[in-house]
Computed example of a mutant assay.
Amino acid sequence: MLDRALVFFKEELSNYIKIKTGGQREDVVQFPEIQLPKEIVMQNNAITSLMVNLEEERTFRSGATRINHLSSQGNQAEIPHLDLNFHLMFVANFKDYAEGLRILSLVLKFFRSYRLFTQKKFPQISPEIQQLSTELVNLTFMEQSELWRSLEMPCSPSALYKVRMLIFQDAEIEQVETGTALRNILTETSLL
């Protein structure tokens, strides 16, 4: 599901930039190439879309390891869903610095115009995804420095968005077997 969310953003953002530039920029949003052992390679004259963090949304989390549902077929148990947020960074890697800033500005406009992505508004979004919302993340200079250092990349014009919330739910429901009903309980006590 993560792949579908990232591809959705890549395609929608590329289409938006193509429209806004009058068709001058096609497929300008790209994923990086990962080369072993750990090098991230960005394409030239493109916006690189990169997931930099994945976190569990704990606000809606149930502490239970299983959720039981009573039905006419017996007691059914399912594993609670997993709610995830991720941070998506868009890096402008252009030879012409001003052009990179212009295209990065279009990224900012896109996410300002569309903050909530639903099936109704975007039918091309994967049916597994109920909705996604985005918010621009403000990093301090120290946090930015740490992020770029951890990516082992030179600092470039970029925007970081927090995307909420992917809900992972296993489609399989496990049937919990229940034994026969207890009729009599015999308790024995002994005197010493």
Rank of each mutant, 00 (worst) to 15 (best):
L84P: 01
S190Y: 12
L13Y: 05
S126F: 04
V28K: 03
I185D: 00
G23Q: 03
Q119K: 07
F8H: 04
E11F: 04
F141I: 10
R4E: 13
P37A: 08
V137F: 02
K10Y: 00
T180D: 10
Y97R: 12
E39Y: 07
I40D: 01
L84Y: 02
I40P: 01
N85E: 04
D3W: 07
L36D: 13
Q131K: 13
L160N: 08
M89L: 15
N15W: 03
D170S: 15
Q169F: 04
E12R: 11
E57A: 14
L70I: 13
F110G: 08
Q131C: 07
L36H: 10
N85F: 06
A98T: 12
R102Y: 08
S71A: 11
V29G: 06
L151G: 04
Q43Y: 12
L132M: 11
P127Y: 11
P127Q: 07
E55I: 09
Q76M: 14
S150R: 15
Q144H: 11
V29Q: 04
Q130R: 08
F8N: 04
R183N: 01
L101P: 02
T118K: 07
Q175T: 14
A64S: 02
T187L: 15
Q35R: 15
T59F: 14
S150T: 13
T118P: 09
D3H: 14
L116S: 12
P37M: 10
C155E: 10
L192A: 14
F110Y: 15
E188Y: 09
Q169I: 07
L82N: 04
R61Y: 10
N53V: 03
Q76A: 08
L151K: 06
V41S: 05
S158Y: 14
T118Q: 12
K120W: 02
R102C: 02
D96Y: 05
M165G: 05
E33M: 10
K20D: 05
M42P: 06
S113G: 10
P37L: 09
E152A: 13
F86E: 00
V52Y: 01
Q175D: 14
Q175L: 13
R183H: 02
S62F: 03
Q43H: 10
M89I: 14
F60Q: 12
E143Y: 02
L54F: 07
S49F: 04
D83T: 14
N44I: 09
F9N: 01
Y16Q: 05
L104P: 02
Q76E: 15
L182W: 00
R183Q: 03
L88F: 13
E78P: 02
N45D: 15
A159S: 15
H69P: 03
M1V: 12
N138F: 12
L6A: 01
R112F: 12
E99D: 03
K10W: 00
R4T: 09
E174R: 13
Y97Q: 11
Q35D: 08
M42L: 15
A171V: 09
I125Y: 06
P127T: 06
A92C: 02
P123S: 06
Q175F: 06
S150P: 06
L82D: 03
M89W: 06
S71Y: 11
L151I: 04
L36T: 10
R164A: 13
K120S: 12
E135M: 12
Q131S: 15
Q131I: 06
F110T: 09
N15Y: 09
L108P: 01
L136P: 01
R61K: 15
P154Y: 08
V29F: 06
